[in-house]
């Protein structure tokens, strides 16, 4: 019973103390409007759009585009 309580205590400590710390001290990529539909566009006209990737975390966000 005592061992069980100790284990539970460690788990609770991990969940409530360590886990939030790791989440808070991390970058967080936040996409605003990840899908853009330009609708109809005449052939030949350049389609230009800027997507916004925001770092909502508290560590620097490092990113690189990967070709699809």
């Amino acid at each position: 019973m005592k061992r069980f309580l100790v284990s539970g205590g460690i788990l609770a400590f991990s969940a409530f103390v360590l886990f939030p710390l790791t989440v808070l001290c991390a970058p967080r990529a936040e996409m605003l409007n990840p899908v853009f539909d330009a609708g109809e566009i005449p052939q030949g006209k350049d389609l230009v759009h800027e997507f916004l990737l925001k770092n909502a975390g508290d560590e620097p966000l490092v990113f690189k585009a990967r070709p699809c």
Partner: peptide
Amino acid sequence: IRVETNDPEADLVTF
């Protein structure tokens, strides 16, 4: 556009 990030919860985001 796939973007690789160092976000532990979203290491790959797509626009």
